[in-house]
Write a protein that binds this DNA or RNA. Structure first.
Length: 520
RNA sequence: GAUCCCGUAGCUCAGCUGGCAGAGCAUCUGACUUUUAAUCAGAGGGUCCCAGGUUCGAGCCCUGGCGGGAUCACCA
């Protein structure tokens, strides 16, 4: 099996060999970093850091490391930009400052854009005004054997920007190197998650971990991934939600528990759906959904401010304000305002007729809850740009939510809709074990009727409820969707480092699959 | 799963009505000791996604496939 290499790859392998022949390690073990690019640029002071007038000694010495991103060779002196975790800084290299022969044979011939190097030297400002590091020592720290796409920039104009989405998602490491915005997005994501975590920790809620491998999946309407445990010879499901386990913990006496974890749903891919995604779920004892709305407002306003310095973000053409309070609209009222139809209490036949009148395709398998959800999703949700709580859903859509305290047929549930998309789902949790059993049974009938997203009966969960669960408010926040909003990202793939893609065909796979054609 | 769009050098992209595969950057050779999309002179680099078909001739037209994107469906 021969690997075909490009001319530039071959070239770099020859350079590596030449380096090693010259006694220069292509992959040394470490480098002492004393400073990073952005910090140097911030802290350099023209007056304070002039060389000592008497001794000529430099005042601001640094040892930096990073990737060589560009190079301008001008005979016996050169400039290059070094990129580290903070950004980029220019390095100035002179032949006569480096060991005999190093500049001409190593720097100019054997190093390339993309190589990782260490530089020791002093900080100064060039004639053109750019704060730079004057190299007195230059060391190769890791040789790049593949050419790095060279992206150039001037006055905010980016040239040869790497835009190919497939390339960017498959080789995210390259995307991260060459697209600063991508690094920033994932820093924002980390900040958002840590912001939520500390917000919840400060309020005394306990962060826990519950099984990702579950014998019975539940807590959401979704198709699961299935797998198998060999030693126990049993089927297992990857969790679609943490909900039922977290509520078991509330039964166990934890008053507030939360988990930030991956859920897995065996469904289609889209710019809003990745098969594994991150969810934050929170359950607080003795509280109900109105209280939870207050908490969500406060938490999201808090993280928006944490990320942007103010509770406002730009999302596409919209400026979204997360400033409290958000609008709160019961779902039937929201539908009535948009469509003119009051759907509350209508029998299924009437709902189906109205749905059809509105131009929706309604088939016989859809229950009344489903039809209401369709009408809402089609006519209301996309128009809710500013944060809005939609409340009081029909009971048949929400098998785990507690019945509404005053309106029959509804549950105490809300979703927060922002930018036309749901960012969270919450309710007063159903804690009546008998009601829960009958809701599970209704789900089970749906399942038997062919709805493969309906929940199964979880006997152990019912047993837990029978021991008594306090009144509880529960919340689920889609971290990926929230990150999309906070980072102005159009696709979930832009906020997930390694989104699922079809497997890439390598040369060896192609040839083996060719061979296996004869076998099968 | 359906529809539409895309796939050309390491990267970004041209490629006319079907007529010798191109540019910039990157790479290589040479010049240049404060440049900055460095500059100047020269050179090399291609499975035009894959497989068929039409044609004297296919990057271009046709069929099928693969991969990606967008929209829809599905779905929180």
């Amino acid at each position: 099996m021969s690997i075909t290499r490009t001319e530039q790859e071959l070239r770099r392998r020859e350079e590596r060999a030449a380096l090693e022949e010259a006694g220069i390690e292509a992959y040394p073990h470490s480098w002492e970093v004393t400073a990073r690019s952005a910090t140097i640029l911030e802290t350099f002071d023209d007056e304070q850091h002039q060389p000592d007038e008497e001794t000529g000694e430099a005042r601001y010495r640094v040892s930096i490391a990073g990737r060589m991103m560009s190079r301008r060779i001008m005979g016996k002196a050169s400039f290059f930009h070094l990129q580290d975790s903070e950004g980029q800084i220019q390095v100035y290299v002179r032949r006569d400052d480096l060991p005999e022969g190093f500049y001409n044979t190593v720097f100019k011939r054997l190093l390339d854009i993309g190589d990782i190097v260490g530089v020791e030297g002093y900080v100064f400002r060039t004639r053109m005004g750019e704060i730079s590091v004057h190299a007195e020592r230059l060391v190769l720290l890791a040789k790049a054997l593949r050419p790095l796409p060279v992206v150039k920039e001037q006055d905010g104009q980016v040239y040869n920007e790497v835009t190919d989405k497939e390339f960017r998602y498959r080789q995210r490491y390259v995307d991260l190197v060459v697209n600063p915005k991508v690094r920033e997005t994932f820093r924002q994501r980390a900040k958002l998650i840590s912001g939520i975590r500390s917000f919840l920790d400060e309020r005394g809620y306990l962060e826990v971990e519950t099984p990702a491998l579950q014998p019975i999946y539940g807590g959401a309407a979704a198709r699961p991934f299935t797998t198998h445990h060999n030693a126990l010879d049993m089927p297992l499901f990857l969790r679609i939600a943490d909900e039922l386990y977290l509520k078991r913990l509330v039964v166990g006496g934890f008053d507030g528990v939360y988990e930030i974890a991956k859920d897995f749903r065996n469904e289609g891919l889209s710019r809003f759906h990745n098969p594994e995604f991150t969810m934050m779920e929170l359950y607080v004892a003795y509280r109900e959904y109105g209280w939870m709305m207050d908490l969500v407002e406060e938490m999201v306003e808090h993280v928006a401010t944490l990320l942007h310095g103010k509770p406002e973000v730009q999302y596409g053409e919209h400026t979204i304000s997360f400033k409290r309070p958000w609008k709160r609209v019961p779902i039937f009222e929201a539908i009535r305002k948009r469509t003119g139809h009051d759907l509350y209490g209508l029998p299924r036949e009437d709902l189906a007729r109205i749905g059809k009148d509105l131009g929706l395709e309604i088939d016989s398998s859809m229950g009344s809850g489903k039809i209401i959800d369709e009408i809402f999703g089609e006519f209301v949700e996309p128009n809710l740009i500013q944060p809005t709580f939609i409340t009081d859903y029909p009971v048949e859509l929400s098998p785990l939510a507690k019945r509404h305290r005053s309106t029959p047929g509804l549950v105490e549930r809300f979703e927060a809709i922002v930018g036309g998309k749901e960012i969270c789902n919450a309710f007063s949790e159903l804690n009546d074990p008998d009601d829960q059993r009958s809701r599970f049974e209704a789900q089970d009938r749906l399942h038997a009727a062919g709805d493969d997203e309906a929940m199964a009966i979880d006997e152990d969960y019912l047993r837990a409820l029978e021991y008594g669960m306090p009144p509880t408010a529960g919340l689920g926040v889609g971290i990926d969707r929230l990150t999309m909003l906070m980072t102005n990202s159009a696709s979930i793939r832009d906020v997930i480092l390694f989104p699922l893609l079809r497997p890439e065909k390598t040369e060896s796979e192609e040839s083996t699959s060719d061979e296996s054609v004869g076998d099968s």
